[in-house]
Amino acid sequence: MAPSLEEPIQPVDDALDSHLRKQPALKAAPPEHCPGPESEQAGKQDACAGCPNQAICASAPKGPDPDIPIITERLSGVKHKILVLSGKGGVGKSTFTTMLAHAFASNAENVVGVMDTDICGPSIPKMMGVETETIHVSSTGWEPVWVSENLGVMSVQFMLPNRDDAVIWRGPKKNGLIKQFLKDVEWGEMDYLVVDTPPGTSDEHLSVNSFLKESGVDGAVLVTTPQEVSLLDVRKEIDFCRKAGIPILGLVENMSGFVCPKCTHQSEIFRPTTGGGRQLAKDTNIPFLGAVPLDPRIGMSCDYGESFFDNFGDSPACEALRDVVRNVAEVLGMKGEDVLPLDD
């Protein structure tokens, strides 16, 4: 077989759209050139000849996914929905989500939620200290776990049968679980919902973003680290957001420099050889929300599910994070100090 690379990449809007349509239940894996079982041509194209699903696809009703309005309804009581996205894994997306939520919640007047949609990364329940909680299911849906008076968490992990097992599922099955999660969790009235998303390398990434986009998100905060390996992926993510019509609130650079705990020498672990996040933000014309230095204690707090803000409130990393949060608030059209009053 000669390698074929014609039209290798599916257009982003088309890919997003396909997640928003009814998905018929297939009896076999679709072949390589499948037009998409949800598409108008399903069951009728050349690729469909001989596909075991042909009869199902050809006769399945086409049209928008009826679950989308249900998801939108579930989230209608939430004033601000913020997606946290990254191109690469491990840049600190979950850490940042947790921080952002704790920061919003440090003002007692805000009701804040954290929604964790990452099936593969078990971080949020651990970071928020709710790993062992059992989830309350009422007649109207699943209820978030309350970490404090005004901070609730719900993770798609809670819906998995066994948390130590790898989820060895192909995309459609994972997407189904995520949809279930979005449909069933009862968020109620909230000021902020911060959404930790699967890394921009997965199929789940697409489905989460397409479902939430429909429900009206304020926009996405992109997280990166300063080195080019990571910036490379965030560029793809910016391209993705633009094509998908998801507003970009701004870019945060995490792990910018490392202050040694022994001496005060600051090392740049992840060197910003191509100008780092700041330069990239400038080049791509998006707001730069700030740079957060690497502090080993952030990792430690996260491991034990404690709030870094409560424990090490005066560390430089905390200061930087608070600035970022204020900047996010400003981008959302509020006054930074109202969301997170300046210390005096």
């Binding site: 890919a15 697409l206 391209d239």
Partner: peptide, 27 residues
Amino acid sequence: FLLANRGDAVVWRGPKKTAMVRQFLSD
């Protein structure tokens, strides 16, 4: 090595990914 532009988002359906992985292993 096969992408025209290094900043492009790569969005593929599962079956296409499967085919690509197979092709990488066979071709």
